[in-house]
Design a binder for these strands. Structure first.
Lengths: 231, 231
DNA sequence: ATCTATTTTTAGTTTTGTCTAAATTTAAAT
DNA sequence: ATTTAAATTTAGACAAAACTAAAAATAGAT
């Protein structure tokens, strides 16, 4: 009974703000027992370092982060678990919006930021099943499993692919709206086949074949596209 | 520009709490230019009258309710519009949960209470379309249209139906979990045909034919079922 | 090793939404 | 028309989450 209450307090009764902090810390690498500075978190969340300090103390009290003054925070196992459950929800909702409601991949983030905080295990499990248990979100980011497992993919940046190598476009590094819209406009989509034909030493631009059609791509673009090698 | 900001402040930037107050006031009849007392609102929301007073002032400042000290509040046109948009979202999400995710009708309320606060016009319009623009929620309550129109139905309580009259079960007055579970257990569902065979003067219980099968129903039950008359 | 510049924390304030307790108003009853 | 009981509001306090400005600690450069 006491045990159950502890569970309820730490897992169910997380505030929206606490959840957002955990998510951010995870994305900044705080799950790899790396210390993330309050400054870095503040910048990412567009808030002030002093606010982060307050929250660091609170999350530390709840056993979700390890916090050392003037050093930074890293996630505990409980913190990682919670962060992954939020990221899981976020990404599943993104898939739902795209696959079931015809949202475009540049529209989903904002809405998913809200939906990820809905508290109902049954709901997200049903959404998962409705979508047939997708492994990746619309931007190619992996969706953690229910028990918090992360399936990393063997992918590299297009800009790091050698000449004459083949692959499939599987994800974006930058998922900002302008970048995604740019990709749409240029018919670059996840799932496309890619062959690197040539690299220009001068500006690092690439000549590639995408879905059979030849095109030229700037380094800026190539360094934000993830590709899975074929061979 | 200034005008747009006013719109943003009053419509988009409603807090969850404000939305819940408006919804409650509407459900208590505050949309019919009837004054709802702070006490009634407090009881419904399981909060204190003094808290309601505070919120009444705030909503009044925003032009969403008319508030007269010691009298109570009623919704303005803007308040009604906002309340209806929340109720619309709530009921559409309920339909979604039942029709697309196989929730039972006694499970949906709690989750819909969260989902109704998601801020995305596009999202709820897409959900509406996905569901093929349903007119009623799983409990038979009408879903307001996008422009805030309410389609009332010509329905009466089963307990008020005369002997030998026929109808279709279209809604529940009490949508508490125990009542809904009771109906499930007794195979009483919306859409069932109903004929009143006999009334017992002693305890006001009814003998009815439901989907061809004869059964006896207490007054307690009959006074919480809405029926649409056939003839 | 000391001094700065930067980072981080502390202390104190604000806003939102709630509460309790006290004061006020209303309404009902004589 | 008073009186009293009930309803309602006010005043003051609190918790959460943020902020600003000042203080403290760290790290880099000499």
């Amino acid at each position: 009974m006491l045990n159950k209450n502890v569970f309820l307090e730490k897992y169910f009764l997380m505030t929206r703000s606490e959840e957002n902090y955990l998510k951010t810390i995870f994305h900044l690498g705080g799950g790899d027992s790396k210390s993330i500075t309050t400054n870095a978190i503040a910048e990412q969340m567009e808030t002030k370092p002093s606010s982060v300090t307050d929250m660091a103390k609170k999350l530390s009290e709840k056993g979700l982060v390890d916090y050392v003054r003037y050093q930074g925070v890293s996630l505990t196992d409980a913190g990682i678990k919670t962060a992954l459950s939020i990221i899981r929800k976020h990404r599943l909702w993104e898939v739902f919006l795209v696959k079931k409601l015809d949202f475009s991949w540049d529209e989903v983030h904002e809405v998913a930021e809200q939906l990820e905080h809905i508290k109902s295990e049954k709901l997200i499990d049903k959404i998962d099943a409705l979508l047939d248990f997708p492994k990746y979100d619309p931007h190619g980011d992996p969706i953690p499993t229910k028990d918090g497992k992360f399936q990393e993919r063997d992918e590299k940046l297009l800009s790091d692919m050698p000449i004459n190598s083949n692959g499939i476009c599987v994800g974006v590094k930058d998922s900002s709206v302008p970048f995604l819209k740019f990709l749409d406009k240029n018919k670059i989509a996840l799932g496309n086949t890619i062959k690197v034909l040539d690299k220009e030493d001068f500006d690092n631009s690439l000549r590639i074949q995408m879905n059979g059609k030849e095109m030229r791509i700037s380094h800026q673009i190539a360094s934000n596209l993830y590709v899975k090698k074929n061979d």
